[in-house]
Design a protein around this nucleic acid. Sequence first.
DNA 1: CGATTGACGAATTTATAAATCATTCAAACG
DNA 2: CGTTTGAATGATTTATAAATTCGTCAATCG
Lengths: 205, 205
Amino acid sequence: MTEQSCTREKILEAARERFLHYGYSKTTMSEVARDCEMSAGNIYRFFASKLDIAEEMAWRFNQEVFVEYERIANSSVAPPQRLYDFFAFALQQTYDAIEKEAKILEIAEILRDERPEVFNKQLEQERVYLVKMLEDGVSGGYFRSLDDIPFVAEMFQSAMMKFRFPQLFSRLSLDKLKREMNGVLTLLAASISPGAKTPACVNSE
Amino acid sequence: MTEQSCTREKILEAARERFLHYGYSKTTMSEVARDCEMSAGNIYRFFASKLDIAEEMAWRFNQEVFVEYERIANSSVAPPQRLYDFFAFALQQTYDAIEKEAKILEIAEILRDERPEVFNKQLEQERVYLVKMLEDGVSGGYFRSLDDIPFVAEMFQSAMMKFRFPQLFSRLSLDKLKREMNGVLTLLAASISPGAKTPACVNSE
DNA sequence: CGATTGACGAATTTATAAATCATTCAAACG
DNA sequence: CGTTTGAATGATTTATAAATTCGTCAATCG
């Protein structure tokens, strides 16, 4: 068992280095196998496919990010500020990662096209923290009472889409992204501020 | 002069038919020229390039849409409802257009990559109507007073990005798009409702 | 003399064959 | 008998040459 998972790690690490250095499509399974001193066929006892290696990598990357999400969501600062810190970190993090390692963008694009569930799962996990911050905000009197917090969290994500995967959806500079994100987030925060009211008519049709 | 612009129209119409039927990349300039009973070279007296024909087409399409925008923005219904009608129309319109004529998506993708200004110009023009509706809403007491309405309009667009070019950014069904759009728009409307307040801290950094 | 052509060059696309790749699996290994 | 291999396979990518295409422009037309 330990033997098994140890080999998995070795494969993952070898693939990671090659993917980041040469890119996903320019990396072959036999190269990864050679790095691990095994045959290409043997990799398939540990990963169902090349794409699954990339998916696992993305998952690991997210795990690291989630550690910080956890910290921010549970910090002692006021919930509105936590929301801001949360999205500001997310933007900076993904922007920097792609800026530093251009090859990450290729993997992101491939996963977006071939494994959209990965992105949905990521958003779903992220929503746990959003819900926490919204709940804290409501009970602390920072936000008005919301009758469907998970839904509100989903709508926040929807409105912030452009900033969650910056280089995937636009080619704006980090500064412009930050300015816009700040603006949108300020509106969203106002929308759940204690005095805010949802106009009835908008929900019609 | 009339002669000139008449030829332009003929080229545009011939190109339109071919682009929509066979796609942009599968249409050649000589085919368009043949349809107009002229040489390929002569087209260049009327359009600087093939891309410019596509750009002009997009522009025309937008003009048609703007007629309806104009109507909605100046209608007599309450401004919040107008906002909803506006974005609902935009979503339905672009979704339907691409659904009906799949080749439009190719043109949209090419313009997004090769002529991003076109999209920016379109957003800029659209913002005129948003500003109008926001102003009407403020003066009518539907919305709180906003000190930078054009900026708010820009942020609305930013938050609604996902719904303005549906098939370009996601593969969601029209129903899911409508549900999400409704949710985001309800939040945005609440954010500018008379009682809403922007939390000071969010603007920091 | 302005409008139009069609031949031309550079760049892109297509066609095609050769090579490489991801993945499978029967056989060899330990 | 569980592990590992490496040859086999079908799909994809690369390499290359031929053919098209966009866009230009000197020559022609009316």
